[in-house]
């Protein structure tokens, strides 16, 4: 990038991560996070990203011209027309994780529809990655379905499972079969908290297996929407058998990595995420999305 062009562009970089369930926006200035925005992915992710960007700019009292580069990532990255460039979520998450802690060896992103495990090489370049093969176990969508079956709000799932004294075993790994297993556990009169704890155990088993398949014993960074679920994180801490960190804004790492990829002169690597106010969460359940989809 020539310096003259850089002068003409605004000082802010916007990362847009259009995931399967939610759309994440993150605004970056000189490598520091200055604002974030979260919304539910709609049928038209391109338009949604634009609307969310306008809202974010209004909140921040900024102008469209202040944004230098827009980098899109996530499964819907190709439909974001306002973006200057698009990168896959695998690259973005690795980039974000490396910026948070360069010593991380494995990055696990547990998203709405996919689990991605990246093994880091030199300079934050991925040396290997794995994804869930045609199986939704452990993803955000899976937990949504289970929360719906148990009639628990998805935001409370993590907290409630921590109250469990003895977790129920859930064996099925298919979302549909696991749901019927959960329903049969409810029918047996089991406590909801115990069932949730059992589900979290199963999810963490799946994630740990995928992380172990990289055959790497180093530090793990867990991010993605599911990392906001304290139940899963606690369970992962017990079973991971290695150093594990969860960043402050686990859901935003993809957008953060995308914004970092703006073709500017390189930022100095910041060892930690700067403090940002807690992101406002728009409460939705699986049912809400289903109804919206039916409309």
């Amino acid at each position: 990038m020539s310096t003259t062009e850089d002068v003409n562009r605004g000082p802010y970089d916007l990362g847009i991560d259009v995931g399967a369930i939610s759309c994440k926006l993150l605004l970056l200035k000189d490598g520091k996070i200055v604002g974030t925005k979260l919304g539910n992915t709609s049928m038209e992710p391109g338009k949604l990203a634009e609307i969310l960007m306008k809202e974010l700019l209004e909140e921040m009292k900024l102008d469209r011209k202040d944004i230098g580069y827009i980098v899109a990532t996530g499964q819907g990255r190709r439909s974001v027309e306002i973006a200057d460039m698009a990168r896959t979520e695998i690259t973005s998450f690795a980039k974000g994780a490396y910026s948070i802690d360069p010593e991380v060896e494995v990055v696990a992103d547990i998203g709405g529809h996919g689990i991605r495990v990246m093994k880091m090489g030199e300079m934050g370049i991925i040396s290997d990655f794995r994804t869930n093969d045609k199986c939704s176990t452990g993803t955000g969508c899976f937990m949504d379905t289970m929360a719906h079956a148990l009639e628990v709000e998805i935001e409370d799932v993590g907290e409630r499972s921590l109250h469990s004294k003895l977790a129920e075993h859930v064996n099925a790994t298919c979302t549909v079969f696991a749901e019927s297993e959960v329903v049969s556990l409810i029918a047996k009169g089991k406590v909801t908290d115990d069932i949730l704890a059992g589900l979290h155990q199963m999810v963490s088993r799946k994630i740990v297996a995928l992380v172990n398949s990289t055959q790497c014993k180093g530090k793990v960074l867990v991010c993605g929407g599911v990392a906001r679920n304290v139940g899963v994180v606690e369970e992962l801490k017990k079973t991971m058998n290695r150093e594990m960190i969860v960043p402050d804004l686990p859901q935003m790492i993809g957008a953060y990595g995308a914004a970092l990829m703006a073709p500017r002169p390189k930022y100095a690597i910041k060892p930690n995420l700067p403090d940002v106010e807690e992101v406002k969460v728009v409460k939705t359940t699986f049912l809400d999305r289903f109804l919206r989809w039916k409309k």
């Binding site: 896959t88 690259t91 030199e122 370049i125």
Partner: peptide, 16 residues
Amino acid sequence: TRVEAFVEMIKARREF
């Protein structure tokens, strides 16, 4: 998505 990530990875390795 997987293939694109793989290609991005190869290109990053090459640059490095």
